[in-house]
Each structure stands twice: as C-alpha cells, then as structure tokens.
Computed example of a mutant assay.
Amino acid sequence: MNIPDIMEKGGIAMWPLLLLSILALSTIIERSFFWIRFLSKEKQITKIILKTASYDWDAILKTSQNHSKHPICNFLYTPLKLKDPDPEVFHLALESSADDELALMRQGDKLLEGVIALSPLLGLLGTVLGLIGSLGNIQISDLGTSSTRGVTLGIGEALISTAAGLIIAITSLTFYRIFQSLWFNKVRVFIKISSELDLIYQQHWLKINSSDSKNLNENYNE
C-alpha cells in the first residue's frame, strides 16, 4: 500500500496522526542539527575559553563574542560582561545564565512529549472507530457466513491507525531519550566550566584587589 491508501484505509484518525508526525519530524531534524553543531565545537571552544581565562582574563569577553553562536559562549557572556564584580555576584550570574541557556537547549522537548502521549491514543481511537464501523452492520445470523469476510478485512484496516500511532510514538520517544541524554551530559559540562571559571575569576579578583590596595598604600605614604 502507498501513503494515500494507508491514509484512506486508516480512517479519520490518520489526519491528526499525519500532523503529529510532521511536527515530530521537524523537531527531530532541528534538534539533531543543533546537537551536531554543539558537539562538533564543544571541546575546542571550552579549551579556548578556559585557556584564555587563565592567561588573560580581560581577553575572555572578546573570545566569547567571537563564538557567540555557541551555547557555551552565550552562557558565559552574561557574567563576563560585568565589570569586575564581587566573586559571589559573578558566581550567581554564572548560575543564572547557565539555567537560562540550559532551558533554551530543551526547546522541542514539550512538543515531543505531546506527540509521544497523543499518538498511541489517536491510533487507538481510529481503531475503535473502525471497529464500530465494521461491526455495526453485522448481525448474529451472519456469523459463519461469507458476509463476515468484509468484517475481517475492516478490522485489519482499522488496526492501521494503531500501528501508525505506535510507530510515531516509538520514533519520537527514541529521539526524545537521545536528546535528554545529551542534555544531561551538557549539564555536567556547564557545571565543570562554571567551577573552573569561578576559581580562575576568584584568583583574578584577588589580584586586582591586592594591586589596588598596594597602590592606595603607596599613595597614602606619599
């Protein structure tokens, strides 16, 4: 059977299932490209950011701007643009920015969750409606006669919607779990970067304050 035949024999429930399949497929494609771009440059950008921060803290903001399309640099930009903040303020800015970026990285999850929940139910609904239509005209006297062959065929066609709903739900669930696994791994990456950058900034902040204190003492003595 080709797609038009499947749509016709599957019943009215096939149309919302078709819509859900299109939404799920577009989300899967978009999220797949996002994660491919993310993973392809993640280690390189992380290494550049932390290396730059260790040797020249003032240059790290420009480095993050040069890779502004990457989620890691977007996450770091908000705290880095602050002008010599207190370490506690810097830490809070890191946490807030990480929460915002991680939330953006979960775009499409709610849609996939909806598809996973609705697809089997719509498929089952299509099957029930098909069974009602197939069994509605049968009479007890027709049992065991050739007139029931059409009922058997109708039941087989009614199950098409259930199969379609399960296929859509299983496919969506597979990619949903993959994206969830990638997201949880990136949470650990963000925590690691935040901890290392927080430590580097504390050393930078202490150096700045010790220099300022030294200059104040020299000016006072003069």
Rank of each mutant, 00 (worst) to 15 (best):
S26H: 07
A103Y: 11
L216D: 13
L135V: 07
K69I: 05
S213M: 11
N209F: 01
I132F: 13
Y55R: 09
R31A: 02
L159H: 05
L173M: 15
G126W: 03
L118P: 06
Q180H: 09
Y201H: 08
R37I: 08
S172R: 04
S210Y: 04
V128T: 07
L129W: 12
K62H: 07
L182D: 06
R177D: 07
S141L: 04
S181G: 09
Q107D: 10
G10P: 03
T46E: 15
E196S: 15
K110R: 12
D99A: 14
S211T: 05
W15I: 11
Q107K: 14
P79Q: 08
S40E: 12
Q107I: 03
S172A: 15
L104N: 10
L82P: 01
E218N: 10
L80W: 00
Y77G: 03
L23R: 02
E157L: 10
K186E: 15
H204W: 06
F38S: 05
N66V: 11
D56Y: 14
E157V: 07
N185A: 15
L135W: 02
N215H: 10
E95L: 12
D86G: 00
G130S: 06
L173T: 11
Q107L: 05
P16S: 11
L199S: 14
E30W: 07
D86P: 00
L143N: 04
L216Y: 06
I48W: 05
D84V: 03
T174Y: 04
S213F: 06
P120R: 02
I168S: 02
P16G: 11
F75V: 00
L94A: 01
N219A: 13
V187Y: 08
T148A: 14
T171V: 13
G108H: 05
R149F: 12
R31H: 13
K83T: 09
P79W: 01
Y77T: 13
M1D: 07
I178W: 01
L129Q: 06
V151E: 02
G123I: 02
L173S: 14
S21Y: 01
E30I: 08
L118Y: 06
Q44P: 04
S195D: 15
N221L: 14
C73V: 14
L94I: 09
S68A: 14
F75P: 00
K81A: 10
D58F: 07
G123V: 01
I138V: 12
L104M: 07
S21A: 09
L135K: 08
L80Y: 03
F175K: 08
T174A: 10
H204M: 08
T27H: 01
D142I: 02
P87D: 03
D58C: 06
I116F: 01
D99W: 05
E95W: 01
S40N: 12
L153G: 03
H204G: 03
L18K: 04
A93Y: 00
D5L: 11
S181D: 11
G108A: 15
P4I: 08
W35N: 14
L20V: 06
L118W: 00
L124F: 09
H70W: 04
